[in-house]
Design a protein around this nucleic acid. Structure first.
Length: 786
DNA sequence: GTTAGTATTGTTTTT
DNA sequence: CAATACTAAC
């Protein structure tokens, strides 16, 4: 109980037990930031300074918010579910659902992700006959989001020239389109919520009265709008403002490209008259050399609040630096090092490979895969972003809201129903003419096209009727079938994976109902002002498949979020990390951005080359460069015991061979902390070249099923078409020494030796034209001759 | 209206 | 190299 504070150092203790007033905590990497934040909440509650309902804690990522909830419930015997702990977007969504009428939104508004937003803009521009050459949709998207992040509506944006004026007009038209269709984009979620609080006195006062403690994680990454939102919520400038507890690290601000404004930290300090500024500078994570490197590097940034991390741990091992000839060699070297580490008992999950951009993961994946080392890739294409999943979700959206034109357009002809571009054009014209949704405009389209469209609308209506009494999972399953999606993919050669993903969606729906209590926590907090205490108590976990209406009395409690809407919201707000096999012990691969907040025993930072890291587009201005340096700082401080830095002299980028010099960051690290692993200057020998040569091969992700593998499911299917061939190949019976084989790239050759088995099987082949090579049989496409 | 095949273009990081 | 846009043939 009272040992909440037991293991805190002096700085942390001071932060946790601060009085109820604005406070800024400058928390260095690995200084126990999350711990301070959660302990603070627990301490406040335990000492009766605030009730769980009076706390609002906001983070940036879903991961962080989940972590906070987990830790909190391990400290206190309370249900964190009903608490207002979440991401900015998640909390805004909650509030908007609760007050949808006041916010001017339909009850079932859908959320557009970045892709959806872009296609909505393209659709709009097409309808308005805007030249995409002159006004690229992508630029418009950036323009709009940027404006929204500053809290600016079209009327507030100053247009200095014709070009900007056009953008402003399009911004206005886009907002109207969204409103008509009942959808909001990410930025709108925040802006709309901000406006709700700002212009609705009763609601604002309610929340200001309710939240006595507002805690913010990663404060350095807040944008202008988020800060304004916080100020409103915390009752800045009122008689009795909430105590804002902001935790941040200016050195870890890496989201400027997304509108993050480090200046918020300074503004906060001034505007809230912060008297309590605590620096957490004791690092509990990294060994000395690693920390020295981080400190040394970041000291090259001019604009800093100033902070230096220290550790009690010894120097530890030096930072190892490796220069490779090619990206393939870099990957090959990592494989060897990882093998060593694993052999010495290091858990795979404690090894992380970091890179600047997602594209770099391919070569590394290939090397790990050939070596049979289990790995997991974060980021990339996430579950809810897959095309087949988005199609299924679009059907589900239409069940809730037929006016959602984006969803309508997405699936009206998928699977193909003979509704082509021309018919759609007619439909869009009609919709514009009668100022209605696409679904409503169907009635105005004559002829064959009209009847096909009408059939589609009937299909949706029929599905809606059929699923009315179904559980969420049943609904999802029914829709994947009745829509014809499953049938369609069954006929496709690479459709098996997609079908499996659709089945996975049913499972996900099931899991959502069980684990999330149906989004009950969202429901509980979604109850309009005045009802929340009742709702918070009414959180018995529903039995599997129970309809929420059966758990909560619909008469007494205005249920605003149906399970389906909750699920769809969940899908857009949490793109669903591809954690298919999260529990498995696998090497972790991710971008540096994705690594923020995580830590590992062993860390590889790869591709440290000018143009890559620092990235080409950021090299020109100092702000960009400083952000890259902060990014590097974040990367370094992920490591606990061992850190590797590597770069390659040449690598294949955008399908072309590029030659790079090593990153300037090497010049900014303390020499005495580094240990150069002198690479063999190998233009020929050294690491096996075919690893690189095969890296981009079409058959790249062919794999036997039993290989430990937990990366992204490749979208291309290999299970159906060539599963048999692979099985034969891997069994070893397919090849013998002396066998003549043919390879797509290397031509004819003779097998000189065989080695290993299963996924590890390799063959040494003497090619007529390319000489002797070792090829992994699981990867290389070899056909026996004769 | 659909499909398959070809030309083009754009490639950082993400809630 | 990949995703997307466009074009020509079915």
């Amino acid at each position: 109980m009272s040992d909440l504070l037991a293991n805190l150092n002096a700085e942390q203790l001071a932060a946790v037990t601060l009085p109820d007033e604005p406070a800024l905590i400058l928390a260095g990497a690995g200084s126990g930031k999350t711990r301070v934040l959660t302990t603070r909440i627990a301490w406040l509650i335990q000492n009766g300074r605030v009730s769980p309902a009076g706390v609002l804690a906001v983070t940036f990522t879903n991961k962080a918010s989940k972590e906070m909830q987990t830790r909190l419930s391990s400290m206190l015997p309370i249900n964190t579910r009903g608490m207002w702990i979440g991401t900015f977007h998640g909390l805004c969504n909650r509030m908007l659902r609760a007050h949808f009428r006041d916010a001017g939104l339909p009850q079932t508004f859908a959320i557009l992700d970045t892709q959806d937003q872009l296609s909505a803009l393209k659709r709009l521009m097409k309808a308005l006959n805007v030249d995409d050459e002159k006004y690229p949709a992508k630029n418009l998207q950036y323009f709009i989001n940027n404006a929204k992040e500053q809290g600016l509506r079209p009327a507030d944006v100053e247009a200095n020239d014709d070009f900007n004026r056009r953008f402003v007009d399009l911004y206005a038209a886009y907002d109207q389109q969204c409103q008509r269709e009942g959808v909001v984009d990410f930025a709108e979620l925040l802006l709309r919520c901000y406006e709700l609080l700002r212009y609705n006195d009763a609601i604002r006062q309610h929340y200001q009265h309710r939240f006595r403690h507002v805690l913010v994680d990663e404060f350095q990454d807040t944008n202008v709008l988020q800060y304004q939102w916080l100020k409103l919520l915390a009752g800045y400038g009122t008689q009795n403002p909430a105590a804002v507890f902001a935790v941040g690290d200016d050195d870890q601000s890496i989201y400027a490209f997304r509108g993050a404004n480090v200046g918020n930290m300074r503004d906060f300090e001034e505007e809230f008259r912060v008297r309590r500024l605590i620096k957490l500078e004791q690092n509990y994570r990294s060994h000395g050399h690693i920390l020295d490197s981080a400190n040394h590097l970041i000291s090259h940034n001019a604009r800093r609040l100033g902070k230096n991390l220290r550790t009690d741990a010894g120097h530890g091992e030096p930072v190892r630096v490796f220069q490779a000839g090619t990206d393939g060699q870099e990957a090959g070297w990592m494989v060897e090092e990882i093998r060593d580490q694993i052999a010495q008992g290091m858990s795979r999950a404690e090894i992380a490979i970091l890179y600047r951009s997602n594209a770099q993961s391919r070569v590394i994946e290939h090397a790990l895969f050939s070596a049979g080392i289990a790995y997991r890739v974060y980021g990339g294409l996430r579950f809810f972003e897959r095309a087949e999943i988005k199609h299924a979700l679009a059907y589900l959206q239409l069940l809730e809201n037929p006016r959602n034109d984006a969803a309508f357009g997405r699936v009206v002809n998928f699977p193909a129903r003979g509704i082509g571009a021309r018919s759609l054009e007619q439909l869009q014209d009609a919709a514009r003419q009668y100022n209605c949704s696409l679904a409503e405009a169907v009635a105005y389209v004559p002829g064959a096209a009209g009847s096909k469209l009408a059939a589609f609308v009937r299909l949706i209506e029929q599905m809606r009727a059929e699923t009315r009494r179904m559980t969420l999972a049943e609904t999802v399953e029914h829709v994947t079938n009745a829509s014809g999606l499953i049938t369609h993919y069954r006929g496709e050669k690479e459709g098996q994976d997609r079908i499996e993903n659709l089945q996975e969606l049913v499972t996900a729906a099931q899991a959502f109902v069980v684990e999330e209590g149906y989004g009950l926590e969202a429901l509980a907090s979604v109850i309009p002002v005045g009802f929340e205490s009742r709702a918070a108590q009414a959180t018995p976990l529903p039995a599997e498949g129970d309809q929420v209406q059966q758990v909560l009395d619909p008469e007494a409690l205005p249920v605003v979020m149906t399970p389906l809407v909750a699920f769809l919201t969940h899908a857009s707000l949490e793109a669903g990390d591809n954690q298919a096999q999260a529990g498995q012990d696998a090497v972790q691969m991710m971008t540096v951005h994705a690594a923020k907040g995580l830590e590992f025993n062993v860390v590889f930072i790869t591709g440290l080359e000018e143009g890559l890291f620092p990235h080409e587009n950021s090299k020109t201005d100092t702000d960009g460069l400083e952000e890259e340096r902060r990014l590097m700082y974040v990367a370094i401080t992920r490591a606990r015991e061992r850190l590797y830095l590597s770069f390659a002299q040449s690598r294949v980028l955008h399908g072309q061979m590029r030659y790079h010099v090593r990153s300037r960051f090497f010049e900014e690290l303390p020499e005495e902390a580094l240990k150069w692993l002198t690479p063999q200057q190998s233009s020929y020998g050294g690491v096996r070249r075919e690893e690189r040569d095969n890296a981009w091969g079409r058959d790249w992700f062919r794999k036997p099923e039993d290989v430990p593998y937990s990366g992204n499911k490749p979208t291309g299917g290999m299970d159906t078409g060539n599963g048999y061939a692979d099985a034969k190949r891997e069994s070893g019976t397919g090849f013998r020494v002396g066998q003549q084989v043919f390879h797509n790239k290397f031509g004819e050759g003779v097998i000189k030796a065989l080695e290993g088995d299963g996924a590890d099987a390799r063959a040494q082949i003497n090619f007529k034209r390319h000489g002797a090579k070792w090829l992994a049989l699981a990867v290389a496409k070899l056909d026996p001759i004769n």
